[in-house]
Amino acid sequence: MKSISLYEEKGSMLNRLGPESKILYIIAALLSPMLAGTKWVGFGFIICSVILLVQSRVIKKTIPILGVSGFILLTVVIIQGLFREGNVTPVLSLGKVIFYQEGLLFAWGIVINVLNILLCFCVLILTTKPSDMVENFVRHGFSPRLGYAVISVFQIIPQMTETMATITDAQRSRGMETEGNLMVRIKAFIPLISPVVMSSLINTKERALALEVRGFNATNKKTFLNDQKRNAADRYIEWSLIVVMILALVWRILKWQVL
């Protein structure tokens, strides 16, 4: 594995959009339900995210993410449905187990919020090259050092993992036991710490030197090999999202006035 990024180039509409549009989509998806004061807006954004992910042919990659969170959300539904304070209206009974409407509605709100957050972030991370995203931040004034720190993680971590595996094999060939019960594994960890840490420190120093001699700390304005990804579609989408947020706010104000 050369990168821990989840990005895959599929040539889809979302791939062609700039990172700013997708980040604004996340902001709209998170803010609009709050502004409108109704979970149905969040539900609408969930449907929208699913459609976008299906269209981009990356929906399958969301399954592991949703699988893990799905398990947690199921426990939330069960616990809130059964035990939430203020549960008075039974709605479902399975033998002696009774689910209450108030708890289930509360859990439903949490499920909508969590799924909305997960799916809108998936729209960004599954369809955006990490280097494009960081490059856009740097173009807008983000520190290049911080940008490098963020982007290098995607490739350096798998390499460090491979190095650790090599060191583990080397120690194993010197007689270190690595498999067995928990105590054996904990004991095996100690002779690994020193070579792994030393190796990481040396590699980091050498990489820092390599960056220095390639002008990493130059103070002049940086240029970019890749053109900024931005077209008319980005502008339409961004304006549309802003309009949606404004409409959500207007809806909320009108609701207050009616009440």
Binding site: V134, P144, Q159, K222, T223
Partner: peptide, 28 residues
């Protein structure tokens, strides 16, 4: 060590070679 001279921030060899030139502000 050739491995430690890879920045780790670029996905292709072409972009990797461009890294230093971007830092120096060389026009595209």
């Amino acid at each position: 060590n050739p491995f430690n001279q890879v920045t780790g921030s670029k996905m292709t060899v072409y972009e990797e070679i461009a890294f230093g030139l971007e830092n120096l502000g060389i026009p595209k």
